[in-house]
Structures are given as structure tokens and as C-alpha cells.
Design a protein around this nucleic acid. Structure first.
Lengths: 143, 143
DNA sequence: CGGCATCCAACTAGATACTG
DNA sequence: CAGTATCTAGTTGGATGCCG
């Protein structure tokens, strides 16, 4: 399963560091993939992006993330907290107040997430154009 | 909706470029979020990571990505092709041969994805430890 | 080999109602 | 305010069979 390392290099991609996204341990366990799946999650990305600017309360997050249900926000926040990416602070007041903030680990993650978001913003026009081309070709073939 | 720029800076995060992950246009349309959701997809990440090394055939991809069904691989490849991130080459031979390769656009995306994967590999021990702490606390509270 | 079509099981996630 | 609990609709995705 390790013979794949004898590949020819691509022509346009930098391969300075060799990483193994598929380095699972024969028993079907692959922590990296599991973690990636979690942090690359739709809602997690948004939460981390928002918390980078400043600490936010539950309701502030919900209002900022259009389309998220309170259930999904709760779930997402719990997972991020469990992974040590955000910190949850409860103030014993009435009405209750809970603040969410990025941890140091969460901040380092944000840097790479930001790169992904910036890439998307930068290239969204290209992608939309590619989609249009693809769809046009597809509809041509139907005739 | 744009007053959020007057936030206090975080203490540990670099905010050199201001990006708006939540820049949807009031009608509920948010291309960036839609695209992000697509490229941050579980299988897409793996496909892009694998294709960076070299061009691969359908079956090679399927064997390399443990757990993916042929259906999901097909779906993922079509979406990536539609978005202009990978290129599909069909050779009119028997039996059929189809090669998949990253486009230039796909290569630039790979760079940021790679950063994400490397971050995950680098920090997976911390995350696993955080999870253990969290779970221990949770089970303590039950007693 | 590299698909597509169909069917169906499982999980996801939204809506709603209720609570400390 | 910040959740939890429940129920259900919708989507995802796996299994299977067939085709060029």
C-alpha cells in the first residue's frame, strides 16, 4: 500500500513537504481524516471565521450565521469546544450569558481556514464561469 | 450589516486582510459559502490531495480512498470537473480508460488544502488530548 | 473499466416545544 | 438567554444491477 510514493511529480504543483492524507492504520482508523472532516465542516468554518474577529455570544453567532438552526449551532460549538478549538465561558447571571472565543489552537487553525476562504473569494468568478461552460456543454449534448 | 468591522482585534490572531465569509447578498445568495461547502467536502479534499501527486484513473482513485463508494467518487469527480478544478480525459479504447488530473486552478486550491491537512497532522495529538479532557470532565459531572 | 439508474437505509438537520 | 428534547422531512450515501 506504500508503493505509491514512487510517483512522477506533477508539472504545476509544489510538493515540498510530503504529507499523507491517507495514512490510516490498517484497522480502518484514520484520525487525520476524521479531524479534517470535522474542521472542514460547513458550520465550523463559519464559526471559526466569525470568532476570529472577537468573542461572541450564542445569539450573536446565530444572527451572524444566516441559515443555521440553534440546534446545529449548539452541536457545532460543542464539537469545537471538545476539540479544544474554542472556549466556552458561562457567566452566572440572569439572564444567562455565554461567551465563545477561539483558543490559541483555534487561532492557528483560523490562519489556514482563512487561506481557504480567501482562495474561494479570489477564484469564485473562475469557478462560476467553469460551471457555466460545463452546463452549456452538457445541454448541447442533449440536442 | 457592515458595522461589524468596528470590532476590537483579537489578541492572538493576525487580521492582515479583511475577508467576509458572510458576504451574502440579502437575497440569501452566498456563492462563497456554497463553493466553500463544496471544496471543503470530505471526499473532495481527498481527491484533490491524491491528484496533486499525479494523474490517476478512476479505479486507482477508488482504491486509494478507503471507504468511498463508486457512486460518491463519480459524484465528487463530476462536481470537481464542473468547477474547473480537475480535468477528465477519456481514451476511446477498450476497455475504457479515463484519467483525472488537477487543472491549474485545482493546483492553486491544493496549496491551501495542503495547509489544512498539514495543520491537522501537526495538531492531531493536541485535539485528541483535548477530546480526552473534555470527555473526562463530562463523565465526572455525571457522578 | 468506468460509469449510470434505482432502491433503500441511515444519518442530518430543521421545526417546534419546553426549561433553568 | 442559552440551551435541551423530540419528532420528522429531507438528504446523503451505500448496495446492487445493468450498460457502452
Amino acid at each position: 500500500m506504500e508503493e505509491g510514493t514512487s510517483n512522477s511529480p506533477s508539472d504545476c504543483c509544489s510538493t515540498d513537504r510530503d504529507y499523507d492524507i491517507h495514512q490510516w492504520d490498517a484497522r480502518g482508523e484514520c484520525e487525520v481524516r476524521q479531524i479534517l472532516d470535522r474542521i472542514a465542516d460547513k458550520w465550523s468554518l463559519l464559526v471559526i471565521a466569525l470568532l476570529e474577529k472577537r468573542t461572541l455570544r450564542f445569539t450573536e453567532l446565530r444572527k451572524s450565521i444566516d441559515g443555521i438552526s440553534q440546534r446545529m449551532l449548539t452541536t457545532t460549538l460543542r464539537q469545537l469546544e471538545r476539540d479544544g478549538l474554542i472556549e466556552r465561558t458561562v457567566y452566572p447571571v440572569v439572564p444567562p450569558r455565554v461567551d465563545y472565543a477561539l483558543t490559541e489552537l483555534g487561532c492557528t487553525l483560523h490562519d489556514t481556514i482563512k487561506a481557504l476562504v480567501v482562495w474561494t473569494e479570489t477564484n469564485q468568478a473562475k469557478i462560476i464561469a467553469a460551471r457555466r461552460r460545463y452546463d452549456e456543454r452538457a445541454s448541447e449534448k442533449l440536442w
